[in-house]
Computed example of a mutant assay.
Amino acid sequence: MAQQRHERPIGVFDSGVGGLSVLRALRAELPHERFVYLADSAHAPYGERGDAYVAARTHAITRYLRERHHIKALVVACNTATAAAIHEVRGSHPDLPLVGLEPALKPALAATRTGHVGVIGTRGTLTSAKFARLLASLDGHVRFTVQPCDGLAHAIERSVAQPVDAKETETEALCERYIHAMGAFGTGPGQIDTLVLGCTHYVFVEPELRALVGPDVYFMETGEPVARQTRRLLEGAGLLNTSPPDGAMPIRLLTTGPVQMLTAAAQRWLELPAGCCASVSAPNLEVKLASSA
């Protein structure tokens, strides 16, 4: 029996495992949907690549997810890929419901009480024309301190294989360096009281960031707003699945890099079994199931 369109999976992709934070929010908002997640870890980090390279990967992955997994919608769970390629992908796939990410500046504008908002993200995101337009549209409303965090997303990827109780980690050192470079955090006059997490990876170092900025600073991330927007698009297109999935595995996690890294991240952050994970070969993204997790 042919699969109905509303029963098809939602595609989700990121340059690595950081987009699992968005997938977590999507699963909470859309419990009856199937998902195919692809981590392009062999080509990460996107934030330190050029726009043309990121756009090419985004187009290749979109085609792969459509042709091999017959996705009904796509969530680009990567700020850098959204900035570099979202408009091109929409033009190439006008029939595909598509959701991208952007740093949560507008919600931060509504949340701040001191009028000073911090933004952390990859250099690729924060130097993009898309981000510049977003920032310019809010010029004069509040003060924004923008901090590129070179190497942090990649360090978070590597940290998956490290013991969680390691005394001193690369991610902690990088968080400390970049947060201290931004100035004073808190609720006092002129202090940064709202921090925008402009990369999906950063959600997974919230404890480290919280220890540095204190208990009163608002954190703004994009997982839940993206999940709500995805629901709205599916409802509008008549593609929302309202019955629990049966038969095939409701979630598949794929990576162009080492499957062990994805497996560790899925188990640590989403409590998903190793059997959900597989590797895909690059650059053609042909499926290659992992022989072991």
Rank of each mutant, 00 (worst) to 15 (best):
residue 24 R to I: 02
residue 204 F to I: 03
residue 243 S to K: 10
residue 83 A to L: 01
residue 113 R to D: 07
residue 111 A to S: 15
residue 4 Q to H: 07
residue 166 A to K: 14
residue 178 Y to S: 10
residue 261 M to I: 11
residue 131 F to D: 06
residue 44 A to L: 15
residue 219 F to V: 10
residue 280 V to N: 04
residue 289 L to G: 00
residue 39 A to N: 14
residue 132 A to Y: 00
residue 75 V to Q: 02
residue 131 F to H: 01
residue 206 E to I: 15
residue 284 N to Q: 11
residue 276 C to D: 11
residue 136 A to K: 02
residue 192 I to A: 02
residue 59 H to E: 13
residue 88 E to G: 04
residue 171 T to D: 01
residue 279 S to H: 15
residue 116 H to G: 00
residue 151 G to D: 02
residue 59 H to I: 11
residue 265 A to T: 11
residue 53 Y to F: 10
residue 75 V to F: 01
residue 65 L to W: 09
residue 9 P to G: 04
residue 291 S to W: 07
residue 89 V to C: 02
residue 261 M to E: 03
residue 211 A to N: 09
residue 283 P to R: 08
residue 142 V to D: 00
residue 151 G to K: 07
residue 11 G to Q: 11
residue 217 V to F: 04
residue 258 P to I: 05
residue 123 R to K: 07
residue 197 L to K: 05
residue 194 T to Y: 03
residue 106 K to G: 05
residue 147 Q to L: 04
residue 8 R to K: 15
residue 37 Y to R: 09
residue 56 A to F: 01
residue 217 V to K: 04
residue 21 S to L: 10
residue 265 A to P: 13
residue 238 G to W: 13
residue 149 C to D: 06
residue 39 A to I: 13
residue 9 P to R: 06
residue 122 T to P: 01
residue 196 V to S: 12
residue 235 E to I: 12
residue 125 T to F: 08
residue 103 P to L: 08
residue 189 P to R: 15
residue 267 Q to E: 14
residue 26 L to I: 08
residue 129 A to P: 00
residue 282 A to N: 02
residue 276 C to A: 14
residue 80 T to R: 12
residue 44 A to I: 09
residue 190 G to V: 08
residue 244 P to M: 09
residue 225 P to N: 12
residue 174 L to G: 06
residue 266 A to E: 06
residue 145 T to D: 03
residue 125 T to M: 07
residue 152 L to Y: 13
residue 40 D to T: 13
residue 108 A to N: 09
residue 139 D to A: 15
residue 203 V to H: 13
residue 139 D to I: 00
residue 267 Q to G: 14
residue 112 T to G: 02
residue 234 L to M: 03
residue 228 R to T: 12
residue 149 C to S: 07
residue 136 A to N: 07
residue 157 E to I: 04
residue 290 A to E: 12
residue 127 T to P: 00
residue 122 T to H: 00
residue 18 G to C: 08
residue 232 R to L: 13
residue 282 A to W: 05
residue 199 C to Q: 07
residue 184 A to N: 14
residue 120 I to C: 04
residue 158 R to C: 08
residue 140 G to A: 09
residue 245 P to M: 09
residue 171 T to N: 00
residue 25 A to W: 04
residue 120 I to G: 11
residue 237 A to D: 15
residue 227 A to F: 02
residue 81 A to E: 08
residue 54 V to L: 03
residue 271 E to T: 09
residue 29 E to S: 09
residue 200 T to L: 01
residue 185 F to Y: 15
residue 16 G to A: 10
residue 281 S to V: 14
residue 104 A to M: 10
residue 35 F to P: 03
residue 40 D to A: 10
residue 241 N to C: 15
residue 222 T to L: 05
residue 63 R to N: 04
residue 100 G to A: 05
residue 27 R to Q: 14
residue 124 G to N: 00
residue 144 F to H: 01
residue 182 M to T: 14
residue 209 L to E: 02
residue 50 G to D: 15
residue 196 V to Q: 12
residue 202 Y to A: 03
residue 196 V to A: 05
